[in-house]
Structures are given as structure tokens and as C-alpha cells.
Design a protein around this nucleic acid. Structure first.
Lengths: 226, 226
DNA sequence: GAGCAAACTTGAACATGTTCAAGATTGTTT
DNA sequence: AAACAATCTTGAACATGTTCAAGTTTGCTC
């Protein structure tokens, strides 16, 4: 926490912070991450270059705003399907497709900044401490996917499934970032092909033969979490 | 292909290229990726800064050398286990553990350059065209893991399994890069926990009930490949 | 070996992310 | 309202990846 609190300590500070954020997100979309220089962002925001660093300790930190807003759009986009569907596979499919839907306008941008999110030490990493609020919010969404479904799931798997599904969505995002097919059609097809398997695996976890494997997988999740 | 062919067109060129490569890998290990500046690399190699760019079109391209050498070390490290073991799980476990073994000295370095490998457009991406020689070599290693085993595998799965196992090893690497546990013990535990599941899934693919799922998964691989 | 083209090398110059000492503004205390 | 501290802002300066026009070396042809 080297930077200023998000609320802003002064009305003017809040105003400046918002101006910088808006300018950054505009330029990111217009030019991509690298080409949106800090000088250009500051200029469009009407402040000096150094001033941007008073509010954001690095250029990467400007992307956290993108994360927050994108998750909000995702929530809105999957509300309908989560209200209407009861089948687990249908709920998962709708939720993940909604994620790709709302992210689509930022596909080019995502390809240019993704490298910064992949760095382990980066605050942009989906596994980083700085990302945990938005990560927890995302996992909560998948908890709703599970809880609101009619699927019969053992209590232990039920606990871990939201996290597993979030990991699954991260994998889809990983593919999406690399996907150059028109309209990212391949990503949608990948979703449609993998979701039924996930659904079948969840169902199979109740079969005695696979019960042990299911337990192993939840144990691995505990391992992953540390 | 904007740069000079790898063999070098002149003895002197070859000598310079090697000097730059050696200096780069040394400095990468000593200081990490960011801190090993192109000026420092050129200086240690005894050439000018601009000369490094005559041989490598970017700093990132210097890492391809690391890939090649690391794969060679990996091959040597898993030769014994592949010669001795017949059980598929044991072969896979030994091969992936060997990958982590040989990569261990570069763990700190990997964390500092990993971001550049994650960028979709980067030639360092494991999915990029530039990486395909070393990727194909890696997949060939997992083909040997499969072919040399006593496991009974249907012909269709047998074809795709090497690629699947390579993807699996990429997932392990992804975890390893983020792993901060002493000696990366967590990564080894993750391998030990996941390998039996992979083995069990391969065996289960022969059960009629799961035959369809196995077919789906191979179809997905075709989708992934495009 | 003189001439020449290709291969190779140089170092200054440029753009960008980031830092920082100094200045300007704002709110509070006396 | 004067003094003062906290907050906010500035723009020059620095380090680094990268480019490029110009120079040097090498090997080949006649």
C-alpha cells in the first residue's frame, strides 16, 4: 500500500484519480497496453506525468481498475442465465460464455497486457494478494453457479467446486487470449465441448469407483492453496 | 527471420553469437532477467550494445537458447527412468520430476522472465511458431513416455496422449513458477498427487462408460490445435 | 594485390517507465 | 488572517530496450 487510498483523501484527489483512470482505460482500448504511454495517459487526463505515479505506483496498477469493471460487467451478463437455469452444466456454460462475451471488446487489449498479468510477482497475477478481492468475487460467482443448481454434489466437493470452476474459467481465458479465430469462435466451441465433461465428472464423482479420485482432487486443491 | 541464421555465416560471427549467448545466460542467472541489461550483456561479451541486436532481434530472443539447453538437460535427466520403468505412471512421474529437477537452478530466473513467455504474440510463448521445434521435441519425449510403457491404450488416445501430457507438464511448470515453498516441495507433491490420477484416467478411458468422454477429450485436442 | 560487395561492428540517439526534489494548493490551528 | 502541516502537482533527470546511419573487416573476383 504505497499509494493513496482508493476513496481519495480530497475531492480534488478523487477527481484526479478518476481522470487518470478514465484516460488510461480509453487509451488502452484505443492503442493497446504498450502504445498507451504514461505520458499520453497523463496528457489526456490533463495532469503531469509524475502525478500519475502519485496515484498509481506503476503502469500495471492501472489495470486493476479494468479487472474490477470487467467483473462487474460479467456479473450483470450472467444474472439472467443464473436466474433461469437449474442444470449445472447450463449454468456453467452460460456463466463462462458471458465472461467471454463481456471481455470480447478488450480482446486485443488483453493480448497486449496479458504478459504483465502472468508474472508471478506482479500484483496483476490472478493469484496475487492484490487480486484477491476480485478473485474472491469471481469465485463467489461460481459458488452461485453451484449452489443454485439442481445437481447432487457431496458436501466436500461442493465446498471446493467453485474454486475448481474458477480455475477452469482461468484456463478458458488463457485459451481465449491466444485465440485468433474470427469472433473467438474457437473459444466458444471449447467451452461448449468442455462444459459437458465437467458436468459429467461432477456426476461421476458420486460413483463409488471414482469417489477416491474425487477426494484426491479436493486434496490437491488444498495443496494448491497452501 | 530478421536475424542471422543460427549457424553463423562466418567463424567470427559464430564466435560473437556464442559470446553474447554465454554472457546473457550468465547474467540472467546472476541477476535475473530485468537486471541483466543489454548493455551489461554486451559488455561482458566484449561487444557493443548494438551488436547484440545484430544477432538477436530482441532481448526476449536470448531466452530461446535457454529453452533449447534446458530441454537437452531434461532429456539427459529422464533417460534413466525411461530405460528402467515400464509403468506409465512411474514413467510420467519420473519425467516430470526430472523437468523440475533440471529447472531448479533457474527457478528465480524463471520467475523474472516468465511474463515474457506468457505473452501470446511473443516468440517465447510455448504455443508460438518460433517455439515449435523445442515444443515438438518436448512432445516427442512424452511420446516416448507413452510408447515405452506397458499401459494398454486405445490407438486414438495413444496418438493424442503425448500432447496431453505435454500440456499437463506446462501446467506443472505454471505452478512451479509461482511456487515459493522451500525446494519447491509443493510442486513435487503436486506431481506425486496428480500423476496417479492421470494414470487412472488413462486406464478408465477403456471402460465403456467413459469411452465417449475420452473421445470428447481427443476431439477437444483437435480443436485446440486448430 | 586492387577493388568490391557482403558481413559485421559501433556508439550516439530516441522513446518509455519511473523517481524525486522542489513548488503549489488546501485545510487546520492559533 | 498568519503560520503551518498535509496533500497534491510539476517537470527535469535517469536507466533501459531498441534503432540506425556510418564505419570497419572479411573474403571473393579479376
Amino acid at each position: 500500500m504505497t499509494d493513496v487510498a482508493e476513496a481519495g483523501r480530497t475531492p480534488r484527489a478523487e477527481q484526479t484519480r478518476v481522470a487518470i483512470t478514465e484516460a488510461a482505460l480509453e487509451l488502452f482500448r484505443e492503442r493497446g497496453y504498450e502504445a498507451a504511454t504514461m505520458r499520453a495517459i497523463a496528457e489526456r487526463a490533463g495532469v503531469s506525468t509524475g502525478n500519475a505515479y502519485y496515484y498509481f505506483s506503476s503502469k500495471e496498477e492501472l489495470i486493476q481498475e479494468f479487472y474490477v469493471r470487467n467483473h462487474a460487467r460479467h456479473l450483470a451478463a450472467c444474472r439472467d442465465v443464473l436466474a433461469a437455469e437449474a442444470d449445472l452444466s447450463a449454468r456453467l456454460r452460460g456463466t463462462v460464455r458471458a465472461l467471454i462475451d463481456v471481455s470480447a471488446p478488450y480482446h486485443a487489449f488483453a493480448a497486449t497486457f496479458y504478459k504483465h498479468a502472468a508474472e508471478p510477482a506482479s500484483p496483476l497475477s490472478p493469484f496475487s494478494a492484490q487480486s484477491s478481492p476480485v478473485r474472491d468475487a469471481a469465485i463467489a460467482t461460481y459458488r452461485e453457479v453451484v449452489e443454485g443448481s439442481s445437481a447432487r454434489i457431496g458436501p466436500d466437493l461442493r465446498d471446493r467446486l467453485p474454486e475448481l470452476l474458477w480455475l477452469y474459467s482461468m484456463g478458458i481465458i488463457l485459451y481465449w487470449v491466444h485465440d485468433t479465430s474470427p469472433g473467438c469462435a474457437r473459444t466458444y466451441r471449447l467451452i461448449d465441448m468442455t462444459v459437458p465433461i465437467a458436468g459429467r465428472l461432477v456426476a461421476a464423482a458420486r460413483i463409488p469407483v471414482l469417489r477416491a479420485t474425487a477426494r484426491d482432487i479436493t486434496a490437491i486443491l488444498d495443496e494448491l492453496r497452501g
